[in-house]
Simulated assay, not measured.
Amino acid sequence: MAEHRDVFIVCNNFEELGGLQRWVHHIGRLFAERGHRVHLIGITHAERAHDYGSDLPYATTVLYERRPAAKWQPRGALDRLNVPAQVRMARRRAGMRRAAARLSEIFRTGGPGSVVIAAQVWAMEWVALADTRGMTVIGMSHESYAATRSSSRYERVKTYFSGVDSFLVLTQEDADAWAAAGMSAAGAMPNPLHVHPERISSLDEQVVVRLGRMSFEKGQDLLLEAWAKVAPRHPGWRLRLYGSGPDEAEIRALAGELGLTGSVEFPGPTDDLETALTGGSIFALSSREEGFPMSILEAMAYGLPTVAFDCAPGVRELITHDVDGLIVHPGNTVKFAASLERLMNDAGLRRSFGAAARASVTRFAPHTVVDQWERLFTLLER
């Protein structure tokens, strides 16, 4: 039997309705079911909190009632004379020290074998200031190496996760890329399947489904461009875009500009995955960037074939092309449209792919993934 441990999971926030937050609550619950004592710690509150329930099997703490000021650094001599900015940064640093001291107090409640999991690099900035002596510290990135490499997060990841006991990403391909970049402690840990379908899609509904935050990296604009090529030839089919986000108004406007108002639906965000996914026959992932897309994992579990841009190793880890879905070169909306049409025109192919998808996701059964975590805890403690 695995040793029971104190596991502290630190993230930016655990309150939003997002993939990272779903993972935090799911893995926290799975650890608790194994007998571990789990504490979820958010740096800040979410702007829009989702109700994850009140009877949680783990403790929760939020360090800041109000989000701290964004980090600022002077770029030249004139900036150094910006007294208000300097004062804000002094207050920010003082606030970080107080929050890190509180984090240290929480960590000290843990017993031997305690583990800290910093699920995001911003959260790791506070973990790095806290007292973690005698604890195993694991850093994580939930996006692909390529996505991080092209962002400001790259140098921060290399700085803040450089001294952790293990730095986990979601696929071995990404772990190898980080190792080549100098992160010698890089390893892979997949997300566990977190849905348990009571029913699956009949694959008879003439609906293509997309779940995701409406933002540039999620590529709903690319999906609409592809749909504009498909919709005129398939008047009975609809594209259903679940979600909300900063680009929602622009995406709705684009649907109108492309003449798609009658074939595109915007039901808003939902946590009723079963209704959303069983109400469709094809899942579309049009993202520009991903890590290990939870939405594909969910769609496969409900028996939907997926058409996805090859935007991350996680897509290739989940989908076997021409077996349980179709993978398209990033940004190729013409090919994406053709792939949608291939499935729309062939109910037998949808059923074949859907059955293969359901079988494939058993690789990520919760007990299998938690076993991997517990083996890692034991290995790192030695």
Results as ranks from 00 to 15, higher is better:
Arg88His: 00
Arg22Ser: 09
Phe31Tyr: 00
Ala357Asn: 09
Gly187Leu: 06
Val328Trp: 07
Thr333Gly: 12
Gly187Met: 07
Pro68Asp: 11
His329Pro: 15
Arg252Glu: 15
Glu173Tyr: 13
Glu15Gly: 06
Ala128Glu: 11
Val169Met: 01
Asn191Val: 08
Gly212Tyr: 07
Gly280His: 03
Ile327Asp: 07
Phe161Gln: 04
Thr148Gln: 15
Leu223Thr: 11
Val207Phe: 03
Arg153Val: 15
Trp122Phe: 15
Met214Lys: 04
Ala312Met: 11
Arg108Ile: 00
Glu217Met: 07
Val307Ala: 11
Asp247Leu: 00
Ala359Ile: 06
Arg29Met: 13
Arg342Met: 02
Ala179His: 13
Ser339Tyr: 03
Asp55Trp: 10
Ala284Cys: 06
Pro235Glu: 04
Trp126Tyr: 15
Ala365Glu: 00
Val230Met: 01
Thr333Ile: 09
His234Glu: 11
Ile319Arg: 13
Pro330Arg: 10
Arg80Ser: 03
Asp79Met: 12
Arg67Leu: 13
Ala100His: 15
Glu225Lys: 05
Pro84Asp: 09
Glu341Asp: 05
Met1Trp: 05
Val169Cys: 14
Val164Leu: 13
Glu15Gln: 14
Gln220Val: 03
Ala276Gly: 08
Lys71Tyr: 09
Glu33Ile: 06
Thr261Trp: 05
Ala123Arg: 00
Leu40Ala: 10
Leu193His: 06
Asp131Phe: 04
Val195Pro: 08
Arg108Glu: 01
Leu254Ala: 08
Glu298Ser: 06
Glu15Ser: 07
Gly219Tyr: 04
Asp271Val: 10
Ala130Arg: 01
Ala175Arg: 11
Met344Arg: 04
Ile200Pro: 09
Leu258Phe: 10
Glu65Leu: 01
Val137Leu: 02
Ala118Asn: 03
Gln73Pro: 05
Arg91Lys: 15
Gly35Gln: 00
Glu381Tyr: 02
Pro57Cys: 03
Arg34Lys: 15
Glu3Met: 02
Pro190Val: 02
Glu374Arg: 01
Ala301Ser: 12
Val334Lys: 15
Arg153Leu: 15
Arg102Tyr: 08
Tyr242Met: 05
Gly18Gln: 09
Ala337Phe: 02
Leu211Arg: 14
Leu17Asn: 14
Arg233Leu: 13
Ala59Cys: 07
Met214Cys: 13
Val307Asn: 06
Val195Gly: 03
